[in-house]
Amino acid sequence: MLQIRGLHAAVNDKEILKGLDLVVKPGEVHAIMGPNGSGKSTTASVLAGNPGYIVTKGDIRFYDKDIVALKPEERAGEGIFMAFQYPVEIPGVSNINFLRTAIGETRAYKGLPPIETREFVRMFREKQHLLQFSKELAERSLNEGFSGGEKKRNEILQLAMLEPRLAILDETDSGLDIDALRIVSNGVNKLRSSANAFVLITHYQRLLEHIEPDFVHVLYKGRIVRSGTKELASELEIKGYDWLNDLPAALTDQN
């Protein structure tokens, strides 16, 4: 579904991604790990089409379509979802109204008619239950005054409602207490299917104990320097990331 080849991307004229390769197939869960500042959030932003991030080289294909030139809302329409590391607050816009609009717009992109109120309500109840998201929060302004954990949970609620083909979760585990982590992970596991894929960005192994990845990648200085299975995550947990500094420059500084 997703093929990233030799991707270079810059923000504010500073090159952050330096030749990233990644292939994701339907039904798979990939974890991207790596130290702070290695480019994990940048990768998510570039995939989602944040206009502040410029692709300077390489390409991104989603179901064989080059998406580099697509607007963020078009990528969302194609089925790419990003759970933000730092979800923003939007005062005055109710969560529910926002969700309804988002569903309406992504459906319109796919040429589907607007969702019926009844169906929307039914679906919302189901997902709200799945993520144990309080009704009171659902009716409040989007993320306004939410705690860190509530915001993260709201991201996953949106994911559940929008049913994307590819979901990128940027540090969704940070800021979640153990109960919330369990709820969120459980939600994600229920949403997994042979038709969708997940990219979990995290720098702790904790999340991966709850959501089992098929592949684990280590991102360092804008490139994937190691890939493996979930055992790699355990290894990183023990070794930390310091060993990355000893990698030959050739591996990390290729431009």
Partner: peptide, 8 residues
């Protein structure tokens, strides 16, 4: 961007 990302 947040709203764009949700398809709006």
């Amino acid at each position: 961007f947040y709203l764009n990302q949700r398809g709006i």
